[in-house]
Simulated scan of single mutants.
Amino acid sequence: MNKKIQNIAVMTSGGDSPGMNAAIRAVVRSCVFYNCTSVGIYRGYQGLIEGDFIHLDARSVKNIINKGGTFLKSARSKEFETKEGRQKAYDNLKNGNIDAMVVIGGDGTFTGANVFYQEYNFPIIGIPGTIDNDISGTDYTIGYDTALNTVVEAIDKIRDTANSHNRLFLVEVMGRNAGDIALNAGIGAGAEEILIPEEDLGKERLIKSLAKSKQSGKTSSIVVVSEGDQIGKNILELADYIRENLDAYEVKVTVLGHLQRGGSPSCYDRVLASRLGVKAVEALLEGKKDLMIGVQSNKIAEVPFKEAISGENELDLELLRIADIISI
Rank of each mutant, 00 (worst) to 15 (best):
K3Y: 02
I5W: 00
Q6E: 15
I8E: 00
D16R: 12
G19Q: 10
M20N: 13
M20V: 14
M20I: 12
A23Y: 01
R25K: 08
V27K: 05
V27M: 03
N35G: 10
N35L: 11
N35M: 13
S38A: 12
V39S: 13
G40F: 09
I41L: 09
L48M: 11
E50G: 06
E50P: 10
I54T: 09
K62R: 04
N63R: 05
I64R: 07
K67C: 07
T70Q: 13
R76A: 03
S77P: 02
E81R: 15
R86A: 15
Q87S: 13
N95E: 15
G96E: 15
M101I: 05
V102W: 01
V102D: 00
V103M: 00
E119K: 05
F122M: 01
I124H: 08
I125Y: 02
G126I: 10
I127P: 10
T130S: 10
I131H: 07
D132I: 05
I135V: 15
T138K: 06
D139H: 11
Y140R: 14
T141L: 05
T141N: 00
D145S: 12
N149F: 03
V152Y: 07
E153S: 12
A154T: 02
D160G: 12
D160M: 09
T161H: 09
T161M: 11
R167C: 09
V171W: 02
R176I: 00
N177M: 05
I181L: 07
I181G: 01
A182L: 06
E193N: 06
I194W: 09
L195R: 00
P197E: 09
E199W: 09
D200Q: 12
L206F: 06
L206I: 14
A211V: 13
A211N: 13
K212Y: 10
S213N: 09
I222S: 04
I222Y: 11
V223S: 10
V223K: 03
G228T: 11
I231G: 05
G232T: 02
N234L: 14
N234Y: 11
Y241P: 07
R243G: 04
L246T: 11
D247R: 14
A248T: 03
G257W: 01
P265E: 00
A283I: 05
E286C: 10
G287L: 02
K289F: 05
L291F: 08
L291K: 06
M292I: 12
V295P: 03
S297P: 04
I300C: 08
E302N: 01
E302L: 04
E302I: 04
G311V: 13
E312K: 09
L315P: 02
L317C: 14
L319F: 14
I326D: 08
S327C: 02
